[in-house]
Amino acid sequence: MNMIHRRICSSDSWGRAVREYMIPWTLRDVDLGADSLEIGPGFGATTRVLVGMVPKLTIVEVDPASARRLDAQFPDVTVIEGDGAHLPLPDNAFDSVTCFTMLHHVPSPAEQDRLFAETCRVLRPGGVFAGMDSRVSLRFRVVHLFDTMVVVDPKTLPDRLRAAGFTDIEVTPAVGRFRFRARKP
């Protein structure tokens, strides 16, 4: 992430937006079960909310420094330094997997598709994959100058999730964002 992005994502206002809007909107009517995985928590604003929603939370963070910081910040969370497209986790291990505003940081559509397939692999049958990401805007482009930005098209996401093995797919667009939900058969 570039400096602008780091400043925004580590701010109190971002944490408040995550707590008051993003997670409630994204996870409305979603049962996360007892054992949940979060992919790409970054600075931990989403983790801070999720930790109170599930009995057992595991997070996977690709950035080594962020993984260390998250491990120190959340002693009751299992923190794994790893790549969401190559999860170092067993098959059928989680009731749910979430990710919030991180898919556009995955460096290619092929890697995003691998992340979707890996997510399906680590979910238990009947498990849910839920998350949200941003849509393109001028502000979004400015925040991502000199940063990885591979935007997911919400119109193509259902087919991509289906190809990864998911069913019961819902994609809900909103101004500047979209949420998605899918289930492992």
Rank of each mutant, 00 (worst) to 15 (best):
A85S: 10
R160Y: 04
T78F: 04
M1G: 15
T47R: 03
R124D: 09
F166R: 00
L103V: 03
T58Y: 04
T148G: 00
G40A: 00
G42E: 05
I59P: 07
A164E: 02
A164C: 08
L103S: 01
P154G: 01
I80N: 07
G42V: 05
M22L: 13
A93N: 10
G131A: 08
L27N: 08
W14A: 14
R7A: 15
L87P: 04
G176P: 01
A45T: 08
S66W: 07
S36K: 07
V77T: 10
I80W: 02
V51W: 05
G33E: 14
R139F: 11
A67H: 00
R16Y: 11
V30I: 15
L32R: 07
W25M: 14
V77A: 06
R121E: 12
T156H: 06
T46Y: 07
C9N: 11
V60K: 03
F129W: 00
Q73F: 01
D76C: 09
G15S: 13
L87F: 02
G126I: 11
K155I: 08
A34D: 15
R162K: 12
R69G: 05
D35R: 14
T78A: 11
K56P: 08
S13V: 15
S66Y: 00
A182L: 04
M3G: 10
F180G: 07
D113M: 00
S108Y: 07
V54Y: 10
A17I: 11
R160V: 07
E170A: 07
T98V: 13
A45L: 01
P125K: 10
T47I: 09
L50I: 12
A117Y: 02
D29N: 15
T26I: 13
E118C: 00
F178W: 04
V106E: 04
G84C: 08
S134G: 14
V171F: 05
V54W: 11
H86W: 02
R162L: 06
F180N: 01
L32F: 11
R135L: 10
D133T: 06
S13A: 13
G165R: 00
H86M: 08
P41T: 06
M132S: 12
F129C: 01
P107Q: 01
D133K: 02
D29P: 11
V77Y: 02
R28L: 09
F129V: 02
I4P: 01
F116S: 03
D133R: 06
P24M: 14
D71E: 11
A130Y: 06
F43A: 10
M22V: 13
T148L: 06
G42P: 07
F146W: 15
I8M: 12
A163I: 03
N2R: 06
V62R: 09
A164Q: 03
D35Y: 13
V152E: 03
D147Y: 04
G131P: 01
E20S: 14
C99A: 13
L32P: 09
Q112T: 07
T78D: 09
L89M: 09
L89K: 03
E170G: 03
F43V: 06
L145Q: 10
R179G: 08
M102Q: 06
D76I: 02
T26N: 10
F180Y: 04
M1Q: 05
E81P: 00
F94R: 12
F43S: 12
V77Q: 02
A174T: 13
L27Q: 11
F146T: 08
V175C: 13
P90K: 09
F43I: 06
V150G: 08
L157I: 02
R16M: 15
F94M: 14
L70K: 04
D168L: 05
R28I: 14
